[in-house]
């Protein structure tokens, strides 16, 4: 299963810092995401694109995990050579993160 099956994500940028906000489709999955989508895993998954530190902020009232990624390799918008100068597509790259847990979308009916 990919993170894309469980959550949506939005990227933002400020200079060569990228922000990535991850939200579960179903709010009860927030603890699962908090456990699985760590700053370390995000940094590893985006290693080709993020050279610096990844800081995770947890926002339980929003059921959100907010990642602040420093030293985006192609960052800086104005002088980047990347096709996507803003790094907007980092959100979709993050959603390709494998989530290695059994997950049942709905409670099973008793049989």
């Amino acid at each position: 299963m990919l993170l894309h099956d469980l959550a949506h994500c939005r990227a933002g940028d400020k200079g060569n810092v990228a922000t990535l906000s991850v939200f579960p489709y179903e709010e009860h999955l927030f603890p699962l995401l908090s456990r699985e989508v760590t700053a370390e895993r995000v940094r590893e998954h985006l290693a080709e694109f993020v050279a610096g530190e990844v800081v995770r902020h947890e926002l339980p009232l929003l059921s959100a995990l907010h990642f602040v990624c420093h030293q985006v390799v192609d960052g800086g918008v104005t002088t980047s050579l990347a096709l996507d100068t803003h790094g907007k597509s980092l959100s979709s790259r993050l959603l390709s993160l494998p989530i290695d847990v059994a997950w049942t979308p709905l409670p099973r009916a008793a049989t």
Partner: peptide, 26 residues
């Protein structure tokens, strides 16, 4: 929710000329 956190590098301190906004309790 997506727009709330968009481009915010510190949810406790989003700096504008008018205020330092903290969105953690929104």
């Amino acid at each position: 929710r997506e727009q709330l956190l968009y481009e915010i590098t510190d949810p406790a301190a989003y700096r504008t000329p008018d205020v330092v906004l903290d969105v953690r309790a929104v």
